[in-house]
Design a protein around this nucleic acid. Structure first.
Lengths: 218, 218
DNA sequence: CACCTGTCTATACAACTGTATATATGTGTG
DNA sequence: CACACATATATACAGTTGTATAGACAGGTG
């Protein structure tokens, strides 16, 4: 867990506080190294230490492993993404607009914090078990949150869904897959991909509604 | 060493064997190294050479790069997958059954030739540009082929589709994303994921048909 | 036969990796 | 002040990496 992440440095006299390197700084250094050709799992401990301006061995004071760093990065990325989507959800309350604004928020994030997204999108299937499990957990969280939204909104709209769990899973996996693909593409292509996502999500929603009429909730 | 495994050693003349190492052997060696924790992009040249039973430098006689090897692996995997799916398509000619049998074929492949699939599913977003482009090309091929099927079948069934290009893209990306996720999971989970895929594809098909009624072909 | 030519190997090198060990340096407590 | 302590560092080591260079051996051609 992010044990020391929130500790406020002010007012703390009891223990010694050094203005030295922080977990945060190491995470930032690792982020700075990411790019279209550099994945988290391709970073070396020494490389990160170098970017953070510390000796290789100092790394061990903050993380046991590169793997532990990777998991921390994933959790951070998940948190960041979660906040963005939550904002989008709060702004929109009707079924079509919540989808639109969520995807727009997602694509905006893709413009800006590419690094965070890359961690979740592009590397969920390589790396250690802990690594994969952390990504999976983030995705599952999104699925559950989306499912709640879907059920609430479809009930309000009187357009119930067949297997809303699978609708949310399909949307999540598809958006992440398409997003990972769009990550480092030129802006106009990204916009095109965003538009495609919208249609695909509509397919899923309409399909689920239709199947509800044919077969019930499932 | 394992390199000579397939050649019959009996009757061997005192002279060195004519049958020397092949691109094929190197590809096989690379495949043998893949696994849940070893991705293509994490293999080293020396490692592959070692597994192939050749000197590191001999590698260069067959590939310029590890990157070139990776592309060769991707193409081979694409070819293999393509054949499997083609068989499935030939066996089934009606709309629902072609989906079912294609996904079943896909999941069967996932039981067997995991290595091939991993190359396409799990690593399309990491690696060099050539690497990514090769994966993208394979995916695009599948999309196009699937789209032709969808148009033909939906016309026959008198159930035309809205944006069949996006239907096939959505199906392809989703199946690959879900497949990559299922790759090294236990058999019962994999079966469950296969069942989920079927429902998701039905969502997409039904949704596209519904949207056609509302908005036409798009 | 001698002579290329293509393929393999052996050796070598500089760069890099993760980490074990020992050392320096500043901080808080007795 | 002296001490212990947490933190940073420097040095070192054994292993790996990609690849440059040079030599060994075969087959085909003159």
């Amino acid at each position: 867990m992010a044990s020391l992440a929130l500790q406020t440095a002010e007012f703390s006299a009891p223990t010694q506080r050094k203005a030295s390197i922080d977990r945060e700084d190491i995470i930032a250094a690792a982020l700075s190294l990411l790019g279209p050709h550099r994945s988290v799992s391709s970073l070396s401990l020494r490389e990160v230490a170098r970017a953070a301006g510390i000796a290789p061995n100092s790394f061990y004071r903050h993380f046991r492993d590169m793997d532990e760093l990777a998991v921390a990065l994933i959790e951070r990325a998940g948190l960041s993404l979660r906040e963005i989507i939550r904002e989008a959800r709060l702004r929109a309350t009707t079924s079509p607009s919540i989808i639109r604004s969520s995807i727009e928020a997602f694509m905006e994030l893709l413009e800006g914090d590419k690094k965070y997204l890359q961690i979740l999108l592009a590397e969920g299937t390589v790396g250690s078990d802990a690594y994969k499990a952390a990504v999976e957990q983030v995705l599952t969280y999104f699925e559950q949150e989306l499912q709640e939204d879907l059920i609430r909104l479809s009930t309000e709209a009187n357009a119930p869904l067949h297997r809303p769990d699978l609708v949310s899973k399909a949307i999540t996996r598809m958006v992440f897959a398409m997003g990972g693909n769009a990550l480092y593409k030129p802006a106009d292509e990204r916009r095109e991909i965003g538009a495609q996502m919208m249609v695909m999500v509509r397919f899923l929603m309409e399909g689920s509604e239709t199947l509800y009429k044919l077969e019930g909730p499932g």
